[in-house]
Design a protein around this nucleic acid. Structure first.
Lengths: 335, 335
DNA sequence: TTGAAAGCGCTAACAT
DNA sequence: ATGTTAGCGCTTTCAA
């Protein structure tokens, strides 16, 4: 590989001059600069980040840890958002995932140290609280999660409360007063927040909540749940005394509600309004009828998290605490 | 950061001895080795890959380029497969995506060179042919794609022909002889291969193909297609002379067929069998009824691609050519 | 504006 | 079995 020295020799200047040009430093005459740039181009010189790291102790690399599980491929948008911002800042992204196992997590932290990562983004695939075995030694921003023990740790999460509120208001504004809610596993933070928002929003309009119309769409513990929304929805909708609108914990639940409604001869949205959550477009946009749903702003979450980490690396001390991003409602045809 | 020299001083040996221990090289007495290891642990020494790279010209990093587009988040499994194999080999993964834009692709190749990547995996999110602006300078394995100009370039792709054949046989074996096919954009390689398989499999049993029952489920050019399978399926199924089984280009098409069937009062699979493709579980497993579908072996594709690249890096010259991985059929309830 | 010297953390190639 | 010397490609520091 051609090194800075080859370029220097080719032009007849010192290494340092080439270094200056390569790093866009001042104090190089326009003429020299042009000659060096020409040589760089003809020789195909590409700087060696490893060598640079050895001197500067800055790798130009940001690490991204995810806990991705095979069945939840939606939040790749987080990664896209991160990537776009990181590469705009001329940094690179080293990615690793824990697959949920903490021994793997240990290995990853080590790998990151070996590469002298500048900072870390720790992303979870659903909004939850995490606790660290050992506190990360490098600047870290949490993505889609918050730290159980350290509330001040920088984090970017969706505003699930707001999203739940907006969804409920949508149903209310459409004139519904018989509103059901088929939820996620209620132990998940997102479910908790959205549930609270549902209660508050209903109360704000003085509409009563019917407890028998609020049921979980999943069975089983976190990470091992099985979708049962179809049966739950059929059960709820078969009665003559039934809801006319259904809020749901995510688009998969909403999809099963669609099937349930159709199986009972109920037209959506005329006989029953259905509102999804997540805006997982592969489902929400392609189901019949397409879903009105609340979007989880994954791409923006990734962007913000990356920007905040970059700010911290640039020495901005003000970047502490949890940031909540709004969840805009996407109106399609289902409710 | 603590360096090899600190460890050496702490134990009272030379740098090189510590280096030997850190790299598991022979010719260190058990006693010295133990003492060095103890010092490494207490001082918290972590080797600096950058420095190592400068000497050895091996970064221990593999680059993964994807062309991921926001609407197709399924093939993340490729990434998981790659990651698992790469980290098993104690290498790291640098990820970047082109978002389809070739100027970005240029920048990425450069970034990879800056980090003196050992090798590259070039992954596409749907099976297609790619052509390179400039031939990659480092060892490369193609993932889910083949090179337009260089048939010998190592590549790992799904065996779409086999998958299409198996799907057709499934319908045939269930006793159907009125089989329709709602396809992907026919310009996509996968569609072409599966289409050929459909023709061949039907011929192998002497069952005639009805051209009016073979129609595209998408409208528009590659990358901008709009799903129209619902309308197409309804059109096909409304006639008295209608197919009793529907093969589909992917699970989204199959899902829309499900809605179409239900809207016409057709029961699946009793009145109409539907077979998906991809086994995108978020849909295939959660639709009512769950889909019988052909699985795209994304995880395995990732694993194999990584293994082949690692083999090449280890000096194995035999790793050339395209490898096709079987697409197993996953039998659920729809057909 | 430019360059010379030194050294970052590590390992290759030799000694010993 | 262990150590010495040199140098990878780069930047820092200081001098010219």
């Amino acid at each position: 590989m051609v090194s800075i020295r080859d370029v220097a020799a080719h032009v007849g200047v010192s290494d340092k001059t080439v270094s200056r040009v390569a790093n866009n430093e001042p104090n190089v005459s326009a003429r020299t600069k042009a000659r060096v740039e020409a040589a760089i181009a003809t020789l195909g010189y590409v700087p060696n980040m490893g060598a640079r790291l050895v001197r500067t102790n800055r790798s130009g690399v940001i690490g991204l840890i995810t806990d991705v599980v095979s069945t939840t491929p939606n939040s790749v948008d987080i990664i896209r958002g991160v990537q776009d911002r990181v590469s705009a800042a001329k940094q690179s992204l080293l990615i690793a995932n824990t697959a949920g196992a903490s021994e793997i997590e240990q290995r990853i932290w080590r790998t990151f140290q070996e590469h002298r990562i500048d900072g870390v983004l720790f992303a979870t695939m659903y909004h939850r609280r995490v606790s660290f075995v050992s506190r990360p030694t490098m600047p870290t921003v949490l993505v889609n999660c918050t730290a159980a023990d350290e509330p001040d740790m920088p984090a970017v999460v969706p505003d699930d409360y707001e999203g739940g509120y907006v969804a409920t208001l949508r149903a209310l504004d459409q004139g519904h007063d018989r509103i059901g809610f088929i939820t996620l596993n209620p132990k998940i933070i997102a479910a908790e927040l959205r549930g609270k928002a549902f209660v508050d929003a209903m109360a704000s309009r003085g509409v009563a909540i019917r407890p028998e119309w609020v049921r979980a769409g999943y069975l089983g513990a976190i990470g091992e749940e099985r979708l049962c929304a179809y049966d739950v929805a059929r059960d709820m909708l078969r009665a003559t005394d039934r809801p006319t609108a259904l809020l749901t914990g995510n688009d998969q639940i909403a999809m099963q509600c669609l099937f349930a409604a159709q199986s009972l001869g109920l037209r959506v949205p005329q006989d029953l309004a259905i509102i999804g959550f997540d805006d997982f477009q592969m489902i929400s946009a392609q189901v019949i009828p397409p879903l009105t749903t609340v979007a989880l702003p994954y791409y923006k979450i990734g962007e913000r998290a990356a920007d905040r980490l970059l700010a911290i690396l640039a020495g901005d001390a003000s970047e502490a605490g949890v940031e909540r991003l709004p969840c805009p409602i996407v109106v399609r045809a289902s409710g």
